[in-house]
Design a protein around this nucleic acid. Structure first.
Length: 850
RNA sequence: GCGGGCGUGAUGGAAUUGGUAGACAUACCGGACUUAAAAUCCGGAGGCUUAACCGCCGUGCGGGUUCGAGUCCCGCCGCCCGCACCA
């Protein structure tokens, strides 16, 4: 029986050794000396209670980076904590009568035990959970600083209200117009809520995206689209008749196409526009129309299918340049949330306006003529013209291109004092109030005489009460008999504590700063920004945008010293872990653990029901296609589980989990181990010298792995490991012992990035000093990276016909001569004349012959 | 509709950025070991043709640039992801 590596005994041993050596603790500035810093962070997990393969992949990727940086001499900060507030804890409380706090902390304990088995190089000394009062107390302090600076504020806004659960729902929690839990029809309610003034930073958040050159292009464009900057003109149309109350000066609209003003055909108001409300108060038909629009709901298909409908208010306004009037309609396609909630419509050049105009028989006047069309006759039918062209039928704008016409029209409107150029953003302020228990309490007090009063800093943290009941719907904090009753800090009168809590996205918007230091702003500044952040692409917009906002806001209240305001220098978004799905004839999903292959057919173990193999999908409980990391670790060890998530696909793409792939990874581990069979201790041999094939290959392999790791091409690094190991094995009989010891020593130090426990066992076999997890990256002899002789393919007219071995510095003319003399190519030159010979030194020779 | 990405053997994917396409792995086939199987080790393999060598074809499709194109340019086709009545 060959000597086999046994992960079950080796892995716990090495984890204990790492812990005893305190290897992964972040070094203090004194210990670190002038070593550069590297802050490596993976998105911290929600403590659901169990680790899944997505976690394993995420943290394995981060661990490769952290270990590599450490070996390269960086002082590495690689912390871990828990994103611990949120609805699942409350749902558990409602469904199973467990305390959310106990539920959360016991989940954390369970997951931490699972984490321990993975052998990640984490510094746990900085661990915290966002539900720790120390953490959310600090967050409350930040909230009050933001409040003081006007970065958070209260306003009334429309929210999704679930009338059964008595709570506000996020848009994501509304499915087809119904609450995701209660199934009740969601109402739009006007509530007073807290908001973060993220729009103050819209311009900078957009412009600075260009500086984030270590972020995926995709994420940057998604954020840019989300922020949605557009330049245009905000202008006023004056009334023809009596002006409605509150709108004496006319109706304000925003447009990006002032060049089409002469094609304006009507004004359209949003059904939610204040003027619509005012008019609806006296007009039951309009009120009914408004209601009908609201019912269409917020679901995307509903919006897509919704036909354009409108209501003529009977009012009209004057055209700013011409002696004519425009009717004012209410139209369902105009959004209150963008611009002013009102538009002027130019149907010839906007599809929505055109659909509406055709339906209600409103005028359509083209004013932009395409380059190849006849200006006298140009007209539109069912398709609006949105392309480039020349302005026509537009008085002083005639003959101009679109851009100049925009400027001309804007100048004129500004001269008439009827409006001004403005920039509009799609981004809206971030609503952070939640009518929930398991979140960070908002630290303010409502007093009838003093208004909104901040909780004095000495009273922080405002702790969540522990004696809450979940037996009625809604927010337990609001139902608590005493918690919200307090005295006003200013006038001491009876007052009420705010019972809303903060959106959990707030918790994760600044945790990176807290990891850098619990309370020392200077230490925070030393570590920030995060050098490498790793997580799922599903956070491309919300979390990552909020984090960028928070870093700026913290900077501006003096809580974080990052000049650029960018908290994250490098971002990597990893792909998902997928698996085949299995389903019985009656549509029941079957777990991979319960299937059995019998020849070509697949059956469910136990029942014997035939099972069909379905699509490869993200591992999920509902499809039952999950693989439990604990079970994997129990069978194959943590190294194999980690290695497999990195080896098959590039880390930014999805990886399909397969049994055979895992077995391949396990085979690799044994193969790597066997390379170290019968190796002497490194100290017992002389240092390797010379330039044997093995030495050349080993040094090249180290460089290849180094480069691949730096560029997140882990699958390529793994391929290099396979080849290298194969070569070392082949060289066992032939290579000098010194060269083999060197190769093994280098191999262990590369292997430790991916399979740290195994590498440690290998390292011990060659008597490596201390622990390989603490060893520096192998030193490379550059002279070994270039070969003395190279093999050059010889092409004739671009087709490879032969090859040539030559010393690396052979003169091109000698290579040319040797190539032409090659007997292999003679038949291909027969009857032809050589026109040209291209020699690319070290690469290729191409003979052009006709 | 807008934006981003992708298309290479049976499969996941390589290809030093314009220089030998298919590294490495999985599945498959063959051999060794074994009473046998598993495990392990060794070997094979893009397609067509051939006894074999040779030869021809080959990176979604069609064109182009180049001595040379998976890579660059133009035009199509298909798939995935994100946003979406944003004026």
């Amino acid at each position: 029986m060959a000597n086999r590596y046994d992960p079950q005994t080796a892995e716990p041993k090495w984890r204990a050794a790492w812990e005893a050596a305190d290897l992964y603790r972040t070094k203090s500035p004194e210990e670190a000396g002038d070593a550069p810093k590297a802050y490596v962070l993976e998105m911290f997990p929600y403590p659901s209670g169990r680790l899944h393969m997505g976690h394993v992949r995420n943290y394995a990727i981060g661990d490769v980076i952290a270990r590599h940086k450490r070996a390269k001499g960086y002082n590495v900060l690689h912390p871990m904590g828990w994103d611990a507030f949120g609805m699942p804890a409350e749902n558990a409380a409602i469904e199973r009568k467990v305390d959310p706090r106990e539920w959360t902390y016991s989940n954390i304990a369970a997951m931490k035990a699972q984490f321990a088995k993975l052998g990640l190089s984490l510094d746990w000394s900085r661990e915290f959970a966002t539900c720790d009062p120390e953490y959310y107390g600090e967050q409350q302090r930040l909230f009050l600083k933001f409040l003081e600076k006007g970065l958070v504020y209260r306003k009334a806004s429309k929210v999704n209200w679930d009338p059964v659960d008595h709570t506000v729902l996020a848009n994501e929690q509304v499915i087809d117009g119904r609450g995701w839990r209660s199934g009740a029809l969601v109402e739009q309610r006007e509530l007073t809520q807290w908001f973060c003034k993220i729009t103050d930073y819209a311009e900078d958040l957009l412009a600075s995206l260009d500086t984030l050159d270590q972020w995926p292009e995709k994420v940057r464009t998604m954020q840019a689209n989300w922020i949605g900057r557009s330049e245009g003109l905000q202008m006023r149309f004056a009334w023809t008749g009596r002006a409605p109350r509150d709108f004496k000066d006319g109706i304000e609209v925003f447009t990006t196409r002032p060049d089409t003003l002469f094609g304006a055909s009507f004004i359209a108001l949003s059904p939610d526009h204040p003027l619509t409300h005012q008019l609806a108060a006296r007009n039951p038909d309009l009120k009914a129309f408004q209601k009908a629009c609201a019912r269409v709901g917020t679901s995307e298909e509903a919006i897509e299918k919704a036909e354009k409908v409108g209501f003529d208010t009977g009012l009209s306004v004057k055209h700013p340049f011409e002696d004519r009037t425009l009717p004012v309609w209410v139209a369902n396609f105009v959004l209150m949330g963008y611009g002013t909630g009102a538009i002027f419509a130019c149907p010839a050049h906007d599809q929505r306006d055109l659909d509406f105009a055709r339906k209600y028989d409103l005028p359509v006047t083209p004013v932009v003529c395409p380059p190849d069309a006849d200006p006298e006759k140009f007209d539109v039918a069912d398709d609006a013209y949105t392309g480039p062209g020349t302005i026509i039928r537009s008085d002083f704008l005639n003959g101009l291109a679109i851009e100049s016409a925009k400027a001309g029209a804007s100048d004129r409107i500004e001269a008439l004092e009827a409006g001004a150029r403005t920039v509009n953003f799609r981004l809206r302020d971030w609503g952070i109030s939640r009518q929930r228990y398991w979140g960070c309490p908002i630290p303010v007090i409502h007093c009838d005489t003093c208004g909104v009063v901040p909780v004095p800093e000495s009273d922080l943290p405002v702790r969540l009460p522990e004696d809450v009941s979940f037996d009625q719907p809604g927010n337990p904090l609001a139902h608590h008999p005493t918690w919200s009753s307090v005295k006003c800090p200013i006038c001491s009168a009876d007052a009420r504590r705010e019972t809303d809590t903060l959106d959990t996205f707030v918790d994760s918007s600044w945790y990176y700063a807290r990891f850098a230091s619990a309370d020392d702003l200077e230490e925070r500044a030393q570590w920030m920004p995060v050098d490498q952040y790793i997580g799922g692409v599903e956070h491309a917009i919300l979390h990552l945008l909020y984090a960028r906002f928070f870093a700026r806001a913290m900077r501006d209240v003096g809580e974080l010293d990052v000049a650029s305001g960018e908290p994250i220098t490098g971002l990597f978004t990893q792909g998902m872990v997928t698996h085949e799905t299995y389903q019985t004839g009656d549509g029941r999903w079957v777990s991979p653990d319960d299937i059995e292959r019998q020849g070509d057919i697949v059956i469910e173990r136990g029942t014997g029901d035939p099972v069909s193999i379905g699509a490869v999908e993200k591992m999920s409980k509902s499809k039952r296609n999950t693989i439990d990391p604990d079970a994997m670790i129990g069978t194959y060890g943590a190294d194999v589980a980690r290695f497999f998530t990195l080896s098959d696909s590039p880390p930014d793409r999805d990886v399909e989990w397969t049994q055979s792939g895992v077995e391949g990874a396990a085979r690799f581990a044994q193969r790597a181990w066997s390379v170290f069979d019968a190796m002497p201790e490194a100290a017992a041999t002389n240092p390797a010298t010379g330039a044997s094939d093995l030495r050349r290959l080993s040094h090249k392999s180290v460089v290849a792995i180094d480069k691949a790791v730096e560029t997140f091409r882990f699958n390529s690094a793994v391929a290099t490991l396979y080849e290298w190991i194969g070569a070392i094995k082949k060289a066992e009989a032939t290579a000098a012992i010194e060269d083999r010891v060197e190769a093994c020593s280098q191999l262990a130090r590369c292997l430790v990035l991916f399979m740290p426990h195994l590498a440690e066992s290998c390292w011990a076999r060659i008597g490596g000093e201390s622990l390989v997890a603490a060893a520096p990256w192998p030193e490379i002899d550059d002279a070994l990276l270039v070969d003395d002789t190279v093999t050059l393919p010889i092409q004739v007219n671009g087709k490879r016909r032969s090859e040539l071995r030559a010393a690396k510095d052979t003169a091109p003319k000698d290579i040319e001569a040797a190539a032409l003399a090659d007997p292999e190519i003679a038949p291909f030159l027969d009857g032809k004349t050589v026109k040209k010979v291209i020699v690319v030194p070290g690469r290729i020779v191409n003979i052009v012959a006709v």
